[in-house]
């Protein structure tokens, strides 16, 4: 292969890498990975940083949606868990990455349902970074920003027959210094409505 064709191939590969859309993939951001601090605007447009919002025992990032029926089923439970663990130094941060939901809609929905901040992830870049695909989907980080648990809030979206409160169990384990037994759990929900890239 000539030097010219090698250079051409290298450039082509680089372009292919740059142009490849970042798709959400559940395996992208594994448990144990450290999250770099980041800032996103809240529903009033004010920039908020993760490290400023984080509690002394960490924070939960939960991907939400204003229209997803599954999120609506979970809203009351999410608010209750957030209230219960706020006092224990774990804060909640909502993220809305759905390009189909207007800022005004997200703002109204957040005001009606949550007492914690909801940040707007325009262009779903943050969802891409974590590989988030579904709403609701939770990421629990400790005080050092290490991911301890990722996935569903519990094992029953209807809330009528919960036998595993994954998120609460993860919190309680971490707060009592025990290893979290189940660090990953999936559940059915709505897809994050990404922009076409």
């Amino acid at each position: 292969m000539s030097r010219n064709s090698s250079a051409f191939l290298a450039i082509l590969t680089l372009f292919a890498f740059i142009l490849t859309p970042t798709m959400g993939n559940a395996a992208d951001f594994a448990v144990g990975t450290t999250l770099e601090n980041f800032s996103l605007p809240d529903t009033s447009g004010k920039m908020q940083s993760f490290n400023d919002l984080k509690g002394k025992n960490g924070a939960v990032i939960v991907f939400l949606s204003a229209q997803c029926p599954v999120v609506k089923q979970y809203n009351e439970r999410i608010s209750q868990i957030a209230a219960d663990y706020q006092a224990k130094g774990i804060t909640f941060i909502g993220i809305n990455s759905n390009h189909t939901e207007s800022a005004e809609w997200v703002k109204t929905n957040a005001a009606e349902n949550y007492k914690f901040p909801v940040l707007i992830d325009k262009g779903n870049l943050f969802a891409d970074k974590l590989g988030a695909t579904v709403t609701p989907e939770a990421y629990y980080f400790d005080a050092k920003n290490t991911l301890l648990y990722h996935g569903a809030i519990d094992n029953d979206k209807s809330g009528k027959a919960i036998t595993d409160s994954y998120l609460r169990i993860a919190f309680d384990s971490a707060l009592s210094g025990k290893a979290i037994e189940k660090t990953r759990a999936n559940a059915f929900g709505c897809s994050i409505k990404r922009v076409e890239k």
């Binding site: 559940a26 395996a27 579904v134 989907e137 569903a152 999936n186 059915f188 929900g189």
Partner: peptide
Amino acid sequence: EDDDAAITIVSKDFAGALPF
């Protein structure tokens, strides 16, 4: 009986978001 187990059976690339 367990959504997490069901999702795992379908594919390692599935996290439960619909449609799939």
